[in-house]
């Protein structure tokens, strides 16, 4: 009986397992293979990985910008998600739709729109110029890159937070209030710890795409803010050095796993479902 049950499970998950194997595991294996082989001879080598040392500051910059964006996303998204979760059910649907609305438009287009806004000759600067405020340096700064990341990935933070907050057990809050907690205490001791899973999955969903992005930094950043995603892209597109590109991707992947590991430690609660 149990055996048949297992076969049934395997059949059900089969399509996805095959999909995973072909489009996730095989490419990962190829990345590993390219990262560890010499471009000419195809023999095993660690040269590609050693060559990355030079680009460590760029890795640092990518992680830093992504971390700042993730943090800003939490700060901005939490109140929004809280307000939506508190709203009447009929209104909730409309509000969630509004949050999702920008995602219906192409990500590339939305980033280009920011370029048109922030440029030296862009809409904002022309508006400021007509008010007599000299052209401000808005685009091609770290701030602009962070803005692009926060803007593009904010919905990914709001959604998991919202789904956690709607499921929050009201009775726990009432219990805390009955036991004499003040409003701030209720928030910090009850609501915030209970929404930790949402914060963690939201942070992952913002951090991971942000750390490997290349389009945002290319459009909103300067020649000095090229991120690791830009370098990886150029290895595959122009320099024809897939081995170095693969080595960079591998290191990036390991760094992302480490960062996620640290984040999971932050949760520190075993009963909380991990991502």
């Amino acid at each position: 009986m149990k055996r048949r049950n297992n076969v049934f499970k395997l059949l059900l998950s089969g399509p996805y397992l095959i999909w995973m194997a072909i489009f996730v595991l095989v490419p990962m294996g190829m990345v590993l293979y390219f990262a560890l082989t010499d471009p000419d001879t195809g023999r095993f080598t660690l040269d590609n990985l050693m060559g990355i040392e030079e680009f460590l500051p760029v890795f640092g910059e990518s992680v830093w910008l992504a971390a700042v964006s993730a943090l800003l996303c939490i700060v901005i998204a939490y109140p929004v998600a809280y307000v939506i979760a508190k709203a009447a059910p009929s209104r909730q649907r409309v509000l969630i739709l509004l949050v999702m609305l920008p995602m219906c438009m192409s990500f590339l287009l939305r980033t280009l729109a920011w370029v048109a806004l922030l440029e030296d000759t862009g809409i904002l600067n022309r508006l400021l110029g007509s008010l007599g405020i000299g052209p401000l340096k808005l685009i091609r700064t770290r701030g602009a890159v962070i803005l692009g990341m926060v803007y593009n990935y904010l919905p990914y933070m709001i959604m998991p937070l919202y789904s956690v907050l709607t499921k929050l057990d009201r009775r726990l809050i009432e219990a805390a209030e009955d036991l004499g907690c003040s409003g701030t205490q209720v928030f910090f001791k009850v609501i915030l710890p209970l929404s930790a899973p949402g914060i963690i999955s939201g942070t992952t969903m913002v951090f991971v795409p942000a750390v490997s992005t290349f389009y945002i930094s290319k459009k909103l950043g300067s020649s000095g803010t090229a991120l690791i995603g830009d370098l990886i892209e150029s290895q595959f597109k122009q320099s024809y050095n897939p081995n170095l590109g693969a080595a960079m991707s591998l290191v990036l992947m390991v760094m992302i796993f480490i960062c996620m590991g640290i984040m999971n430690r932050f949760a520190g609660q075993d009963e909380v479902s991990r991502i």
Binding site: L56, P57, E61, S223, A226, L231, N241
Partner: peptide
């Protein structure tokens, strides 16, 4: 040329104290 070009184009990175 390509490897030098990659180094030139790569960002300035972070100041060490941030690390």
């Amino acid at each position: 040329m390509n490897s030098l070009w990659t180094s030139i184009k790569s960002g300035n990175g972070l100041p060490w104290y941030l690390f």
